[in-house]
Amino acid sequence: MIKRRLYVEERESRLARWSFRLALFAIPVIVLAAALYRTGVLDFQLALATLGAGLAVALVGAILAVVACVSIWESGWRGMGRSIGALAIALGVVAVPAAVLARGAMLPPLTDITTDPSDPPRFRAMGLVRPRTANSLVYAGDTAAQLQRDAYPGIKPMDLDATPDEAFNALLALVQKRKWHILDAVPPRGTLRDGQIEAVAPTPLIGFRNDVVIRVRPTAKGTRIDVRSASRYGFHDLGENAMRISSLMADLTAERRKR
């Protein structure tokens, strides 16, 4: 007697397979957007569109992964591990942008933040390199100043018990440590001239450019530091400029405490 064996083919979920492919594909799309923008091949709008496409692909992959998990749970097909992997990759890709957007939704649409709205530090060298399509370097005025005060009450000038030269050198070292691209660095000259540093600060991932000017002004008791950070493109900085100023001021305070 010939014994017959029944072979049951365990099917693999196509949704799981495609979710994993899409989640993986989103990574090189985002990397490509960053690389092409940093090298100047893409302008801001195209880089932003490419980045958005990569995030959209990751989001679709995450949705398919959830659907695949439910389908596999009910059918018993193979692919649960691939679905969970796709979901993890997709969430890892979209988590940071989603958090930034969520934070920005609660903030006013500002692109130019300064510690001194009544007399903001003025960009000089930056005007020679900024593209014509970029945001204006002229400060927006009282309306923007009031929005800034309401949203970022902690953005204020810093008074130091130090000479202007000491403050200028400390700030220059911090800017270099952050690997910002310095366009101009004019040291202070007593009461005749304020010290000023102009630099371009790229965002960590894509490298979107933000322009920073730091003013070092002598006072009767030492030195006053003012900082201005402006997004080169867009209508909303999502809070990045205020965070950049706060971080720089915090680092300067920490450096002064070491001495």
Rank of each mutant, 00 (worst) to 15 (best):
G104Q: 14
R149Y: 02
V175P: 02
V200E: 08
Q196S: 15
P187L: 09
A98M: 14
W73D: 03
G104M: 15
V129L: 13
L107A: 14
G195S: 03
V175M: 01
T133C: 00
C69V: 15
I155D: 03
P157I: 07
W73H: 10
D119A: 14
R132I: 13
Q196N: 04
G195Q: 09
D194P: 00
S83C: 07
W180P: 08
L137V: 12
L137E: 14
T191E: 09
S75D: 09
F123I: 01
I155G: 04
M80S: 04
P188K: 04
S75E: 11
P131W: 10
R103C: 00
Q148C: 07
M80G: 04
G79W: 13
T133W: 00
D142Q: 08
P164H: 02
G127I: 05
P153E: 08
L183Y: 08
A167R: 01
G154C: 00
V138N: 06
A199D: 06
Q146A: 13
N169Y: 01
E198R: 03
L91G: 12
D142H: 02
V100Q: 10
R178F: 03
D119N: 15
V200A: 05
P188A: 06
V175S: 04
L128N: 12
I155K: 09
P188M: 08
E74L: 15
F168W: 06
L171V: 06
M158F: 01
P121V: 14
N135P: 02
P97Q: 08
L110M: 11
L101W: 12
R189Q: 13
V93W: 10
I182C: 00
L110Q: 05
C69M: 15
L160S: 01
G85L: 06
R193H: 06
F123G: 04
M126T: 15
T143Q: 14
V200D: 05
G104H: 14
V175G: 01
T111D: 02
T133I: 07
P108V: 08
V96W: 15
T143D: 15
Q196M: 14
S83E: 07
P131C: 09
K156N: 05
M80H: 06
G154H: 13
G195C: 06
A125R: 15
G190S: 01
P153Y: 04
W73S: 10
E74S: 13
N169D: 13
H181N: 13
A99Y: 13
A86H: 02
F168Q: 05
M80A: 08
A86L: 03
T111G: 05
T191M: 09
V96G: 03
E198A: 05
A86F: 02
K179S: 14
P117S: 12
W180H: 11
T191K: 10
L87I: 02
D142K: 09
F123M: 03
G79D: 08
L87E: 03
L91N: 11
Y152G: 12
L128F: 11
R149T: 13
